[in-house]
Amino acid sequence: MSKTVQKSRLSRSRTRSAWLFLAPMLLTLAIVAAWPLGRTIWFSFTDASLDLMGEARFVGFRNYLEYVAWGDGEGQYYGLLADARWWRSVWNTILFAVVSVSFETVFGLIIALVLNQQFRGRGLVRAAVLIPWAIPTIVSAKMWAWMLHDQFGIINDMLQTIGLIAEPIAWTASPDTAMVAVLMVDIWKTTPFMALLILAGLQMVPGDIYEAAKLDGVPPWRVFRKITLPLIMPAVLVAVVFRALDALRVFDIVYVLTPNTDATRTMSVFARENLFDYDKFAYGSAASTLLFLVIALITITFIMATRMDLEGKRS
């Protein structure tokens, strides 16, 4: 009896100290994440401008969609949802996310399979593969901007030397190739991350499965299709979702490599331009809010679908 009383007092005091320990972290996150997010959403329903944030007035959905009648029975829609530039940036973002993540998955899988083999110098190769990931995005964008330079770039030189192209290409400046350039840099930079996540999945596959397959004389391609791929699928899926969420908010590469072009403007770039360059603070906040909604939906679906193990019960 007295033991349970003592125990519950102990556990109550431990619960109290738990909240005490959590308080600084939670307070910080509240100030840097929850509150700003709430304010962004609020601004999207106001007429806020960069200099007059405090005096913002509620204007309803005007930033998203508004029908202005001209009085003669005709009128026009205004707002984000009627803005062709916005829809172009939505399309750019989706295109960027789908293409970059697809290529990164395939290349990441190949690199992971190579790194999963035993060979001399594997540690060095793995370190080399990690380097693009460690290089700051801005620096990679600049390095590639120089390599892709229309007159003095080494990529044009290579392609001309092997005869693939006759004339130098203005990779970043031409609207036809700007997106290709952005994709190239992103795939180069982020494939290592993908490779490492898939490699971690590969290393959890027990080795005796391969031994058994080898003894039975199963050809390598079938081993990969029927054994390896199904077993690493969960790891690949997690990696794909992580990367997709990251790709949907892409900003740095586009902003630095191909500034100010409709061909590559993504949702994040669109939002920032309106917030700070065009002084359409409320309009930019509306764009930010929509991007947040898209990403939140995907995240929630993902968490529900995988029933993430948060209490640590399974481990």
Partner: peptide
Amino acid sequence: MFPQIAVLSGL
């Protein structure tokens, strides 16, 4: 998972 841009104006 928050996109940085979503908190930018509030921050």
